Computed example of a mutant assay.
Amino acid sequence: MTKKRLYLILTLGLIAGYSWLAYNLWQQHAVNSKPVCFFKRTTGIPCPSCGNTRSVLAITSGDFYDAVLINPLGYVIAAILIIFPFWLLYDVTLRKETLYRSYLQFEKALGKKTVAILLIVLILLNWIWNIQKGL
């Protein structure tokens, strides 16, 4: 993937993420309803990322323990939403490639069997936990 394409995808993803977060913060105050993902509505079981929105919302309100219980992946999403806009701005403003180089290193690491298997196992464990707790 080219640097330009990566930065465009990240920018659009961050805009979508912040828009979704703002919408859910507004919904949380307007109506006390919990969003249900398409996968859960279709199959009746939660997906591996079910609860991420509620986890990030818990983080924004300072309920850090609840955020972990809802879905620990929410912390990954929150970190991305906090760090990546500044990182993108840094690279674009100063014409650097630090984020792009880090992406290439991450992509290379994912190509290693042990790293890929570890991440898959962690996602599967999170999914089992989501199903177990009836998310």
Results as ranks from 00 to 15, higher is better:
4 K>I: 15
22 A>G: 12
92 V>L: 15
30 A>C: 00
2 T>N: 09
107 E>T: 14
44 G>V: 00
115 V>M: 07
48 P>G: 00
92 V>H: 06
130 N>L: 06
27 Q>H: 07
113 K>V: 01
118 L>S: 09
76 V>C: 03
41 R>N: 12
92 V>K: 12
110 L>P: 00
119 L>N: 05
69 L>G: 02
66 D>Y: 09
72 P>D: 09
101 R>E: 06
38 F>L: 10
98 T>D: 06
37 C>S: 01
6 L>W: 04
120 I>D: 03
27 Q>K: 10
18 Y>Q: 02
58 A>E: 04
30 A>N: 07
15 I>V: 15
129 W>R: 04
84 F>C: 14
65 Y>W: 10
109 A>C: 06
10 L>M: 09
107 E>I: 15
127 W>E: 01
117 I>E: 04
63 D>V: 03
80 I>F: 09
129 W>F: 14
29 H>D: 14
13 G>L: 12
21 L>T: 13
105 Q>L: 15
134 G>C: 06
115 V>C: 00
69 L>Y: 05
55 S>A: 15
111 G>A: 03
10 L>G: 02
52 N>W: 00
96 K>T: 11
73 L>A: 12
50 C>S: 00
135 L>A: 00
22 A>W: 13
36 V>S: 03
82 I>D: 06
126 N>E: 14
87 W>E: 00
12 L>Q: 02
87 W>H: 02
124 L>I: 12
8 L>T: 11
89 L>Q: 07
135 L>Q: 06
24 N>S: 13
52 N>Q: 09
66 D>F: 08
43 T>R: 05
53 T>M: 07
51 G>C: 01
96 K>Q: 04
61 S>P: 08
71 N>L: 04
3 K>N: 04
121 V>S: 08
1 M>V: 14
126 N>D: 13
93 T>G: 08
59 I>C: 10
129 W>P: 06
87 W>Y: 10
75 Y>S: 05
45 I>W: 11
130 N>F: 03
92 V>D: 01
11 T>R: 05
10 L>T: 05
36 V>L: 05
21 L>V: 14
107 E>A: 15
95 R>C: 02
69 L>I: 13
97 E>D: 13
61 S>M: 07
112 K>F: 08
124 L>T: 11
81 L>T: 04
76 V>Q: 01
34 K>R: 15
61 S>Q: 08
27 Q>C: 01
16 A>K: 08
58 A>N: 08
20 W>V: 12
83 I>D: 06
14 L>I: 11
93 T>V: 12
12 L>C: 15
65 Y>S: 10
7 Y>F: 07
27 Q>G: 00
87 W>N: 00
15 I>Q: 05
83 I>R: 09
33 S>P: 01
98 T>C: 09
60 T>V: 02
112 K>D: 03
26 W>D: 05
51 G>E: 07
23 Y>R: 10
68 V>N: 04
57 L>A: 05
4 K>M: 11
42 T>D: 06
102 S>C: 10
91 D>F: 07
